[in-house]
Amino acid sequence: MIQEQSLFAPGHRACAGCSMPTVVRLVLDATGPNVIVVSPTGCLEVTSTPFPESAWKVPWLHSLFENAAAVASGVETILKRQCKDTKVLVIGGDGSTFDIGMGSNSGMFERGHDIMYVCYDNEAYMNTGVQRSGSTPFCVHTTTTPSGEQSLGNPKPKKDMPAIAIAHHVPYVATASVAFPVDLRRKVKRAAELRGTSYLQINAPCITGWTFETGSTIEISRLAVETGLYPLFEFVNGKLADVKKIRPRPVTDYLKAQGRYRHLFKAPGGKEAIAAIQAIADENIANYGLAQE
């Protein structure tokens, strides 16, 4: 599946079992070499480019947390001025995408730059020590939403970032998972062929933040999809165009496999919280029509 000569070289410093390098390799395999990548600060930037090393075999720029979309907008504008058809890619984490970068994302979406924005979504600020982000799901334990006697973890559900992109009339918005590489590649190719902004959000499990065995990364991401908690869909011009059908599995299969939900199986109120998480999955299944006939 993964090409032997990848544009993202081995020898980077990502954790063993991290899904992020696989996501990046799959994305670059699909786009090919005619791209310029912008990455905001985060796990990807830190592990792939400790000065003077680099894992990137394509042109790559680094920006601060909040302004990757603005930097990419500048790069895309000058490429247009030069009449070049090089695709500009942002590859950033959910912290920069959902929270601090929201302003510059909104500007990029609204102006309709020819940029593919890829968010590797590991659902918290992993690079700075697992603090919650706007992408952190309901009841997840993080270092700033600690679980304990008074708390069941993150009190808020995950922010619906694809809906925010759709509300900006972004012509192509899709979600994908590292566990479904064929689907992921197809979506990247589609976004790359499009003239205009696209937003791709990719479920990317983190071994340290989610706490699971290093060999289970793909299985965890598959469970996120198959429980209905991470629906895979495509919106073209604001309309739901396609979904990945599933035979829904109970959310407990997914929750019990990860340390970040461990408290729900012990603490008072945990049972009700699990029921609430199941309700989130059920709602996704109904809303997107995920269940296989």
Partner: peptide, 30 residues
């Protein structure tokens, strides 16, 4: 807002402030 090497101040505040009725808010940006 999290940033190394100051994040532990945030962690400690999130843990201890609510215990004594003080308020902790994690912002979306600096």
């Amino acid at each position: 807002y999290p940033i190394t090497p100051a994040s532990e101040i945030l962690h400690e505040a999130s843990k201890y402030f609510p215990m004594v009725g003080r308020k902790f808010v994690q912002a979306e940006s600096e």
